[in-house]
Design a protein around this nucleic acid. Sequence first.
RNA 1: GUUUAUACACGC
Length: 347
Amino acid sequence: VGVRNASINMHARRGSVERAAAIFRSMAHPETKDVISWNVMLAAYANAGMGAEAVLLLRRMQQHGYSPDRVTYVNFLNACDKREMVEHGRSIHARIVVQSKSAPGLCPRTNTVVGCALCSMYARCDSIEEAAAVFCSMEQHNVVSWNAMIGAYAQHGCASLALAVFGSMQQQGVKADAVTMISVLDACASAGDARLGSQVHGWSQQLELRSAALDNAAVNMYAKSGRVAAARQVFEGMQVQRRTVMSWTAMVAAYAGMGHVEQAFRLFYAMQQEGVRPNHVTLISILAACSHAGMLQTGCLYFASMVADYGVRPGQEHTGCIVDMVARAGSVDQAHRLVERSGTGGD
RNA sequence: GUUUAUACACGC
């Protein structure tokens, strides 16, 4: 069983939920499966953002007579990643509370993993009040729970609340880590506060919290504050080897967002020369840049050859760019043809 | 090599 579970996990981690699910399905007989099998599969769905599948899986798990454990619940909460799923999250929350009376390890007030999972679940589902309520009810805080709360506020554009929580964290003497600084930079980005942001970036360097993600967050923070040059400077300061797809994409998006289409394309080519594959997000930025610049031909070419050139299937975001672009040009027929040919079925 | 919490890029 262990071998199979490991193999489900391996496929899921390599991005093939299909393969993972196939192995899981092949474990048809009850004796060949254990709680971990279900948990691994649930985690796979959660990481792939497949909330609906996670809901069905949890249901089936119980129908088959398995009792969810703490990992099951945490994995499931992880799968609740949008507003529409908040009710699922709430009902699991309620169950956790009830069951924690006989299973203390489940208690969100005393178990930080469960608490953080609930807090971030509510944040992802846009229920910031409930996220804060969970956070406040926790008796034990660690760096992760503080980070979760800072990140929750930052992502909802509540920059000053995020910074306030960051302040309390420091008052409590909890040492910030790289994730903390990323979340704070995120808050600065949403506030467009490059002054504070650069200070935060400076602190993190002093604290020797260097990571690619941190630099990416700084690039993004400057870009969102309209300071492309500063963003570029951080980007240039990164070791070429350490630049990830996200670094490049952030920089492409920064130029695209400022209407510097030429520069966006230059980086888009440069990243490929460095052997970094553009992903679906990179292509959204490129298509958006074409759209804003009225580069109808170029945009349609990239859209049409995305799969062949980059292995990226057009999603509704890409289609949205094209529709937008074509709407500006007033040639709706061409848009229909492209969209239908690519089979994305976007609206 | 079996499963669990927080973080960075993206159109309208």
